[in-house]
Structures are given as C-alpha cells and as structure tokens.
Write a protein that binds this DNA or RNA. Structure first.
Lengths: 223, 223
DNA sequence: TAGATTGTTAATCGATTAACAATC
DNA sequence: TAGATTGTTAATCGATTAACAATC
C-alpha cells in the first residue's frame, strides 16, 4: 500500500515537471522506437541517432529521456525496448481506458473501428447516436446504441472517456449527457467548443490544425 | 507582374518569420473568431478578450496578429471579420488545393466524406484503393478508383496533395505512386514513416499524439 | 586502456511577459 | 478631453545548445 502511494506521487510529480515540448517529443520518440524495433535488429540506439532522425540536438534527447527516468549506458546508448516501454508507461499506454463514441457518422464509425487504439490503452466499448435510424445498425464491431443507454453503459463498464463526433450543434447536449453519466474526459472531434465543469479534461482535435500546418509547409517549400 | 512578385516575396518572407508557436496560436485564433462571429454580434474583439479565452497573455495576441499584418484600433480592438479573413488568407484557406485520398477504409471514407474541408480550401477530388473488391464502390460522393487511374487523375485535375490512409505496409508504394504522378505534398494517416524526395512536403498525423495528450492531462488532473 | 557516449552544468538563444508611450 | 486599448521596447523566463567531465 505504502509503496503504491509513493509510486503514485512520483508519477504525478514527474508529470508536473515535463514541459509541453518534451511531451510532444516523447510521443515522436515512441514512434521512432516502434519503427526502429520493426526494422533494425540492434537492441540499442544512441541519442545521436534519434536526434539525427528528428533533426534536433542530441543533448535534447538525453535530457528528455532523463526527465522520465530513462538511463543510458556510456559507449552503448539506450536499450530501444526500454525506451519504448518507459515512454508507454509514462504516457499511460499501459493502462486501460474505456471510452464510448458519441455520433455514428463517418468519423465516429472510423474511430470505433480503428483497431490500433488498443496499442495505446484505449478500448472503445460502445457507439451511440441519437438518430433512431442509426440505432441498431452495425458499424465495425459495434451495434449503435440510443443515447438513453449511455448512463447505464458508462456506469456499468466504468467508462472514463467520451469521444464526441457529433455535428457542432449536437456537441453541447451530448457532452452534458456524458458528464452527467460520470465520464472524466472528453475528446472532441466536433468543430465547436463545449462548456464543461472544471474537473472534466477536454481536448479538442481540430483536423484543420494538421491541414493548416501541411499547407503552411507546402507554401514555405514552394518558394 | 511586378507587384504580384513583390506580394509573393512579402508572403514568403512573412512565412519564414513566424514561429511554430505563433502558427499554432493563429489556428486557435481562427477558430475563436469563427465561434465568436457565430455567437456574438459585436463586430470587434480586444486582444484581452482573446487572451482570456485562450489563457495566454494579451501582448502575445497583439504580437501574433501584428506578425501577419493585422492592425487594431486603440480603444476599439480588432475587427473580428478582419482577423478571421487575414488568418484564413495567411494559412492558405482562401486558396484551392486539390487532393486525392488513397485507401478506401473507414478512415479514408470518413476523410473523403468530410464536408468541412471546403472551409479550409481542400477539395477531395477522388478516392483510390488497390483492392479490386473496393474499386467501384460508392463511399459518400466518391466512386472508389483503382490505383492505375491515379496518374491520369492527378495530372488531368492538377492535384497537389495525396492523403494516405492505407495500412502501414502499403504506405511506401502508395506514396511512391503519388510522387511519380506529380503530387507535391502527402498527408500521412498511415502509422509508419515513408521515404520521399526532398521537394515533397510530408506531414504525419498520429492519432496517438492527441490521445497521449488527452491521457496525460487526464492523469495530471486526477492528482 | 582508449575512446565513444552518457549525464549535467553553464552559456546561449528565443519566446513570453512587463512596462509604457502612442493614439483614437 | 480622458481613458481604454494598441503597438513596441525592454526585461524576464524557459527551452535549447555547447562544453566537458564521468564512465563503461
């Protein structure tokens, strides 16, 4: 019990310490490690190699890895598997998060059917829609549920996350239903802002963000 | 001709000057302006109001807007419409970009059917798959085309962007086909890295990035 | 051992914030 | 006019990079 609590504190403390930029790089390191493990049989990788790949400074890599407690060996580098596992653990990919998807349109269907979420600890447990014509349809491995069932399912299955893929005008009521049912985080793909109590974690996923950065790079490269 | 070239240089110069953080904030300002125009009839907004909304410093907002040439008025603020339009122009949303989607799975289908891309200047002109069973199917408003038709369509319609939604192992050959056909940018949703010539703009969209940040916030908030 | 690579402190750089004069 | 808000310079802060000692 004691050591569990101590570990908990350690993790929370760690979390408060890393910067947003470090968090973003950790995610990239993770993908690089995964790719590397697939393609290259060597068990270790140097900070320099990671840095080259990502076009950043090698000191940065060592600092970032040190920040989450990953140690390397002089003259050897870092154990690829170690790095990957520790980042997974730090980012929470080793935990189990249950989620429901609200909105059974194209995007909701794609998200519900996306089998790689399991790699990141996310398990989509049900798909909802308030359109009676969609309720009962099978999309991927889910049968679309009516919104009335959300409260029961969230509580019975201890669901923590709601993924919102409804049209903008339906986002606020859907979010409210999810909050009332007891979810703790909302991942918003609807293109609008929602109001939630302060204890709810909300993240907005704007497809336009990725697109804007792509167009910007494209125009910059075109010069 | 002369003034066109001068304008071109001005834009390129501007582009080289703004930082990655400013670019990210511009996208957020854009969404805030769009929301604001929907909900609030007043024609102006102060840097302070934008800053409050985004929980940043108001000087930051004025600096960012000044960086792309937006001027405000003392005692008045900024014209909401002005700000929105100039950001759209700067980010390239006012231009027309033609794209093809390669991979007619759930995600490819969702992207091909996503009607809000028009707002950002992206026009999905065709959907491709190399699986004969998918060719000919209608997904949203597109009939799935065989990969053999890609070269023709890209050249006839002057397509600049390829959106990759194929499985990881199919990504490299699909990217090669797109590059050979003459596209200039690839927006990669496949979860792998691809190799491309240096003149091709590539952006990777990792769904795990958004998820990792959500889980991180969730765990940080839980403390 | 020699030397490659880590880990860490110090220096630099750039981004954010504070201060305030300009202005409508 | 008075005062709210912009625009901009200077100060601060934090992130990145350089330098180098520790180490396997």
């Amino acid at each position: 019990m004691r050591s569990e609590a101590a570990r908990e504190m350690y993790i929370v403390k760690n979390m408060a310490e890393i910067s947003k930029t470090t968090l973003e790089r950790l995610i990239l390191y993770y993908h690089f490690m995964s790719d590397h493990l697939d393609r290259d049989k060597s068990a270790t990788v140097t900070s320099n190699k990671i840095a080259d790949m990502m076009e950043i400074d090698d000191t940065q890599v060592r600092k970032d890895l040190a920040a989450i407690g990953i140690k390397g060996l002089p003259r050897v580098g870092f154990y690829t598997e170690d790095v990957r596992n520790r980042i997974r653990e730090f980012l929470g990919f080793e935990d189990l998060y249950r989620a429901v998807v609200i909105g059974a349109g194209h995007l909701g269907g794609a998200i519900s059917s996306y089998d790689q979420f399991a790699e990141f600890g996310l398990h989509i447990t049900a798909l909802f829609d308030n359109n009676p014509e969609k309720v009962g349809l099978t999309i991927g491995s889910h049968v679309v549920q009516p919104m009335e069932r959300l409260l029961d399912i969230v509580q019975q299955r201890n669901v923590q996350i709601a993924v919102l893929t409804v049209p903008a005008e339906a986002a606020q009521p859907a979010a409210q239903t999810a909050v009332d049912a007891g979810i703790r985080a909302i991942w918003v793909f609807s293109s609008t802002r929602i109001k939630t109590p302060p204890n709810i974690t909300v993240r907005y996923e704007h497809i336009s963000r990725g697109l804007a950065e792509l167009l910007y790079s494209l125009n910059a490269n075109a010069s």
